[in-house]
Write a protein that binds this DNA or RNA. Structure first.
Lengths: 186, 186
DNA sequence: TGGAAACTATAGTTGTAAAAATAGTTTTTT
DNA sequence: AAAAAACTATTTTTACAACTATAGTTTCCA
């Protein structure tokens, strides 16, 4: 079976989002109705499993990103808008308020996670800079834009204010991106 | 001496921002070179001291806010911009990443702090709604604007990204407010 | 072959008793 | 009169042992 690895990693993501780091190899084997032995045939140890899972979790996002980038029917500002919409997928698939738990026990996995998210910003940053240089967007230090977007996403995910006021996450996200892209228009 | 209370409360704010909640009554007396007895003559106990300090910490901000509000030479959107610039003062004077420590031991103080910050948003929200109703700004759910601003401020204060890229806090703050106000313009 | 369960060494948790720190008071000193 | 220091009752940390949970392995069975 070739997608055995894959379903194990799916289970890891699932368990992680349910219980944070407090899930066991037994939890995974139970969820998948497979034996631990089978897991250990695919992955040397928990470390390798986590490491592989981080990579796996980003493949879909990277792909979506690549599609946007190569679609030449899109204006640079439109590309940017779509790219920014992609970014929060990271924060949704991997609940970041739980990821800090990795820092202590799996520092390598954590830094891989952090650097992949960072690298997801790279294309966006490049495009932002380009749009500013071309005069399509107002000049503004990139970190200001980046931190504003990141901060908003984390607030949208973490605060109860949205659900209390019946504003959906999607609505908030699109609103925020709309404000920022418009705010940067010359 | 009339500003004895005041200097004690200043010391509390100072100690808090240095050490979080891990400062003692002795620390305060040492910093001010006064005896503990003198502190306890002004304040019944640590609770009352903290409670009073929260109120004290907000007076300057509230005053600045009131001045902006009553200045009729300002356009509503200008008022809003200045009001939003005021808001972060809360987050700077009282480091919010440390305030959560109050929750357990001084729940009353914490809720006072939270509600005062919340009430600081009230005027801003009122003005935002008004500007949207008057067609001066694009309609947008208020929580989206609020969370975006709050999220950005917290990121600006907490992340090392600004200092690493030589962007000052003020620059970032003004940039962010500029983006958002412009992004909301019709 | 692979699932289920038993097994072991280790890592993590919990309870607790001793030690240290601290809020608030009292005494002494300046 | 107020600072400094000493004091006490309470709270907070610390240290450590007993207990529990878990990663990874091995055995057994369908």
């Amino acid at each position: 079976m070739e997608n055995l690895r894959q379903s194990i990693m799916e289970s890891v993501i699932n368990q992680f989002n349910q219980k944070g780091m407090k899930f066991t190899m037994d939890d995974i084997s139970k969820e998948l109705h497979i034996s631990k032995k089978t897991i250990y045939k695919e992955f040397d140890d928990k470390d390798e499993l986590f490491f592989a899972t981080v990579d796996y979790g980003f493949t879909a996002i990277k792909q979506k990103e690549a599609e946007v980038l190569k679609d030449d029917s899109l204006d640079i500002v439109e590309k940017l808008t779509r790219l920014i919409v992609c970014l929060p997928d990271n924060y949704r698939n991997i609940d970041f308020r739980m990821a800090y738990q990795l820092k202590d026990k799996y520092p390598l996995v954590y830094s891989k996670l952090a650097s992949r998210i960072e690298s997801d910003w790279e294309e966006t940053e490049k495009l932002l800079k380009q749009a500013m240089d071309e005069g399509k967007l107002k000049k503004m230090p990139i970190p200001v834009v980046k931190l504003t977007i990141e901060g908003a996403i984390e607030k949208f995910l973490g605060s109860e204010e949205l659900s209390k006021t019946n504003v959906s996450y999607e609505e908030a996200l699109n609103g925020m991106i709309d404000i920022i892209i418009n705010g940067l228009r010359v």
